[in-house]
């Protein structure tokens, strides 16, 4: 009994310690942002590997999700004779929810895991130690550009996801199922609000970009410097990021769209 209590305590203290370390790392990363202005190349390189290389998976997923939304939406809306509002349904679900959330989940799987593995292996092969001994701060030089790149790339990727999703929905709804072209776009134009829908979606994806990249970098930086350690850290990145995205999405939705 006492032993179990002690174990519970250890787990609690361990988690708090991790949380503390995570926040310290975040502070150090943020402190390095100003240096990026003198070395924009570092950020550009990371924007490429974190952002541009994720474009394909995000674009394809976005298109298919939009197409499925068009299909399902049409079947349900047509039961009430409301199939002309398909455009609103597709756009609202994408911009408000699916765009930011699914992009963040894809991002965690594609870019987050890659970041963790990269940083973890750099640690395991003493590259980070090597930088420290060259009097180069690895957090500022290696982690900060990646962090900022993730933060910037996420909303752009989510916007692409939503835009291609709308086109996918248009293709299925208007192209295949015969929804009126004009109604599809005009309904969308009147009902989708720039602030309520689009801006809130952007805020969500900024939050997700912040959290996913932070988790990925923290896991990589804190991973045990062995092959097993890196593999565990990579798994943790995907699992923790997914939970964080889904949990935060609920909270943000409640705050933004709740009465």
């Amino acid at each position: 009994m006492l032993e179990q209590l002690a174990r519970l305590g250890r787990i609690g203290i361990g988690s708090l310690e991790q949380l503390g370390r995570g926040h310290l790392l975040l502070l150090y990363m943020l402190a390095g942002i100003s240096e990026l202005f003198t070395r924009p190349r570092l950020l550009l390189n990371q924007l490429f590997s974190v952002g541009v290389l994720s474009v394909l998976i995000v674009a394809i997923s976005g298109t298919f999700v939009g197409m499925v939304l068009g299909l399902q939406g049409y079947y349900i809306l047509s039961q009430f004779g409301a199939e002309q509002t398909l455009g609103v349904m597709v756009a609202a679900s994408l911009v408000r929810e699916l765009g930011p959330v699914v992009t963040a989940l894809l991002f965690a799987g594609r870019a987050g895991s890659a970041l963790t593995a990269e940083i973890g292996l750099m640690k395991a092969t003493e590259q980070l130690s090597g930088l420290e001994m060259m009097a180069v701060n690895p957090v500022k030089r290696i982690l900060t550009p990646r962090f900022l790149a993730g933060f910037v790339a996420m909303p752009l990727l989510a916007a692409m996801f939503s835009a291609l999703g709308v086109l996918g929905g248009y293709f299925v709804g208007v192209g295949l199922l015969g929804v009126d072209d004009g109604a599809f776009w005009s309904q969308m134009q009147t009902k989708i609000d720039l602030y309520d829908d689009v801006l809130n979606g952007v805020i969500k994806s900024l939050v997700f970009g912040f959290v996913c990249t932070w988790i990925a970098l923290f896991q990589g930086y804190g991973s045990a410097p062995t092959s097993e350690g890196v593999s565990r850290a990579t798994t943790r990145t995907v699992v923790h990021s997914s939970f964080a995205v889904l949990g935060l999405d609920f909270i943000l939705t409640a705050l933004m769209f709740g009465e």
């Binding site: 092969t125 003493e126 590259q127 130690s129 090597g130 420290e132 001994m133 060259m134 009097a135």
Partner: peptide, 16 residues
Amino acid sequence: LRMRMGMLFQSGALLT
């Protein structure tokens, strides 16, 4: 101070 120290790691620790 480290700018005046060099260290050769066992693995080399080159940036890959």
